[in-house]
Design a protein around this nucleic acid. Structure first.
Length: 501
RNA sequence: GCCCCCAUAGUCUAGCGGCCUAGGACGUCACCCUUUCAAGGUGAAGAUCGCGGGUUCGAAUCCCGCUGGGGGUACCA
């Protein structure tokens, strides 16, 4: 067991190649929880060294996604900090990486490689033809004196800078998640990876490491896909003579069908899609915390503060988690039910406005009406986006007929159309004369009517529900009638009676 | 192919040598509540702890092998 000793500094370092997906948020969340738990700092750094895949605006989207779930950083591109800048392209402009690659060249831990991508591809193909099991590239320049490398470079021939990896021996690193023995890799399995591209831009392996060191990062919590490249990173730390951070590789999140890890392309996992669909950030944080981590054998619903208090690395799972939208939905429903009605109403307004049921911005009257309606659907909601569908008939008239509900759906089991019409006429009369228009008064009156007409409650209530809402499944009848108001109820009854012929 | 990691019900997960006749949750199915749908309550089905060997008085828990799954194998991160 490796002890965690404060101070602790961790970071989340996404590359702006598109929106942030759920897996990325999970990694950020674990870093953030770790930092908060140990009273350390959480740093956000943008790794935009890939000019080809750079997507303008992606960094802003990533930051918006993180803020949405409730993750804030102590140092970052937008707020600065003592170790800035926090965007790699800006650091490149300052010449930071160039200084350190020169240092490695000088010390002989790296070399200029003049093999082009095309030549390398050819070498690989040839090796495969010859039946070489595993092609491991090492440039011949690795044995050249630095002077000779420089001379060739001076002629203008493009080159990359590669790490000179040892041919023998082994490299071991410990991992907080994967046991104390650590992970060992034979050095002959490595190859001389590119550190600096021909463009002069550093590659991830190099840039992140220089930055982590300069930014005093103590713990690196990152996804499992980085395990295979960690030996290179360790070798790099050794080459610089720097103390490596403590590593913890988090389990990947697998796709719902278990076939491969979550991907932006194939799965609907863009973080910003979840706010559009009506997920609560607090529910999202709770669910994500459970992807690869657990507190005990029964506690699942935990607030932000509880998560911070309870999050420890030793309880992070080594085996992959699987994306489970059903579970997320369930947790979202739990959080929705915990909301105060006014709070829920407030969160519902944008969805109702987007559906065109209320104005944008909503008027005071609309706002008040939504507050009035919220209790009717509160515990029936698992996504906020379901609200417009559930509340639509409070804003629009349900019409019997081809464009609306089927008149036949008015007719309850055991009755025919004329009988139903008669029953609804009786209900109309009762409601018309009712003095107090409250759920309680409505219930008393309508139950009396059932007895008088010798109809089962289910028959009357069912027909009324359809007449008034246009659907067989709706919120509780008496609350619905009360919220709709007498005028609209009577008008809808008239329409239903007419439709029954 | 090669390297690395992982392995408890359909899914997530508890378990770190005896508290396990394997606990919790999602999902599924019943029943109760009930005017529908939910929510809530009760209960059920579902795991020979992937398989095979060891170690031990005793293994889901430790070791080895196999199998399966996943990750990596770029001048992407």
């Amino acid at each position: 067991m490796i002890e965690i000793t404060p101070p602790v500094r961790v970071r989340f370092a996404p590359s702006p190649t598109g929106y942030l997906h759920i897996g990325g948020v999970r990694t950020a969340l674990f870093n953030w929880l770790f930092a908060r738990h140990y009273g350390g700092q959480f740093i956000l750094r943008i790794e935009d060294t890939d000019e080809k895949r750079y997507v303008p605006g992606a960094a802003d989207d990533i930051m918006a996604s993180l803020r949405w779930v409730g993750i804030e950083w102590d140092e970052g591109p937008d707020i600065g900090g003592p170790y800035g800048p926090y965007i790699q392209s800006l650091r490149f402009d300052q010449g930071i990486y160039q200084v350190y690659s020169a240092q490695l060249l000088e010390s002989g831990h790296a070399y200029m490689s003049f093999t082009t991508e095309e030549e390398l591809a050819q070498l690989r193909a040839d090796a495969e033809m010859r039946g070489v099991k595993a092609f491991r590239f090492r440039g011949l320049e690795r044995d050249w004196p630095l002077e000779r490398q420089r001379e060739l470079a001076a002629t203008g021939k493009p080159y990359t800078i590669r790490l000179k990896t040892p041919l023998t021996g082994q490299t071991t690193f410990t991992d907080l998640v994967r046991g104390a023995e650590g992970i060992t890799v034979q050095n002959d399995q490595l190859q001389d990876i590119v550190l600096i591209k021909t463009s002069g831009m550093p590659v991830y392996h190099f840039a992140h490491l220089v930055d982590d060191h300069l930014m005093r990062i103590t713990h690196v919590l990152r996804a499992e896909e980085w395990v295979p490249s960690t030996p290179y990173h360790l070798l790099l730390y050794q080459a610089f003579g720097w103390k490596p951070p403590v590593f913890a590789h988090l389990p990947v999140i697998l796709r719902q069908d278990g076939k491969g890890k979550l991907s932006k392309r194939k799965d609907d996992v863009a973080t910003n899609r979840f706010w559009e669909r009506g997920y609560l950030p607090e529910a999202m944080m709770n669910y994500l915390a459970l992807q690869g981590w657990s507190f005990d054998d029964k506690t699942e619903i935990m607030s932000r503060d509880e998560l911070i208090e309870r999050f420890t690395i030793d309880r992070v799972q080594a085996s992959p988690a699987r994306w489970n939208p059903e579970k997320l939905r369930d947790i979202n429903g739990i959080y929705i039910r915990k909301l105060a009605p006014e709070d829920l109403a407030e969160r519902l307004l944008p969805f109702l406005a987007a559906a065109g049921l209320i104005g944008d911005p909503p008027s005071e009257a609309e706002r008040a009406y939504v507050v009035r309606l919220v209790p009717l659907i509160h515990e029936r909601l698992e996504e906020l986006s379901e609200a417009p569908g559930l509340l639509e008939f409070f804003f629009r008239e349900p019409r019997p007929g081809p464009d609306g509900y089927a008149p036949a759906s008015l007719v309850p089991r055991g009755l025919d159309a004329p009988q139903t019409a008669a029953m609804l006429r009786a209900a109309h009369a009762t409601l018309h004369d009712l003095e107090l228009w409250t759920p309680e008064a409505l219930e008393v009156a309508l139950r009396e009517l059932c007895t008088r007409l010798e109809r089962k409650p289910g028959q009357l209530f069912g027909a009324l529900r359809v007449a008034v809402s246009g659907r067989a499944v709706a919120p509780p009848l008496f609350d619905m009638l009360a919220a709709l108001g007498r005028e609209r109820v009577l008008a809808r009854l008239d329409a239903a009676i007419a439709a029954l012929g």
